[in-house]
């Protein structure tokens, strides 16, 4: 564990708490892509199945339980509790175009051709693109509530912090995890546009609005 990874994980944790806070206080899931959230559940369930047979640490265990349960809870909030506030007509990104290629990639690129390892690779590839329906929705509506942008910023910061973590681990432990690193770089790159608007507008006190 190093500080980059710790702060990355805490940022991930914060992003979910911000999202829950947004939904609970506004009593609405407006502006949130159900597809992205459903993809995250898929990612967490596929990756954290090792919860049942591989003990890493209490930290690791608690985080996994939190990520799986909170992401399922968010789906419940969107589909049941605040269902009327979710508008599927603007959440139109075809998620199956993401899942299919990730299955194929996982079958080709994995560390061992076993079920858990292929599932792990799949979750890494899927996580790297899971934010696309959300970003697509943002692009389509051209604006976002400030709280939603804080959620995305925390999520992007988590990904960004994993990069110095890998550099640190390369020098301190001599390990490289090429699948995680390549997918992670792709994932972080997807946030570049968002961060540009976030830094130049939201953090200057303006509303998140994309140029027409």
């Amino acid at each position: 564990m190093n500080l980059f990874r710790l702060f990355g994980d805490l940022s991930h944790l914060a992003s979910i708490l911000i999202l829950l806070h947004k939904i609970q206080t506004t009593r609405s899931c407006r502006g949130i892509s159900f597809k992205t959230q459903a993809l995250y559940v898929t990612v967490f369930v596929a990756r954290y199945l090792d919860l049942f047979y591989d003990w890493v640490s209490l930290y690791n265990f608690s985080m996994k339980v939190f990520f799986i349960s909170s992401s399922i809870y968010i789906l419940y909030l969107m589909k049941v509790r605040f269902r009327p506030t979710h508008d599927p007509s603007i959440d139109t990104f075809r998620a199956e175009y993401l899942v299919g290629p990730c299955v194929v990639l996982a079958l080709i690129f994995n560390y061992k051709f076993t079920f858990p390892e292929v599932l792990w690779s799949f979750s890494i590839f899927l996580e790297s693109v899971a934010i696309l329906p959300q970003l697509f929705m943002l692009q389509r509506t051209g604006e976002a509530e400030t709280i939603t942008t804080h959620y995305l910023a925390a999520l992007g910061a988590y990904r960004a912090l994993y990069i110095p973590n890998w550099i640190y681990r390369y020098f301190s432990e001599g390990v490289v995890d090429p699948i995680a690193v390549i997918a992670g770089l792709v994932q972080t790159a997807l946030y570049v546009d968002f961060f540009y608007v976030y830094f130049t507008k939201v953090l200057q006190g303006q509303k998140f609005e994309l140029p027409a």
Binding site: D50, N60, M63, W120, V175, V176, D177, P178, A180
Partner: peptide, 10 residues
């Protein structure tokens, strides 16, 4: 081989 017997990152 990527150096870990298990995946220790989240």
């Amino acid at each position: 081989e990527h150096g870990h017997e298990h995946h220790d990152e989240l």
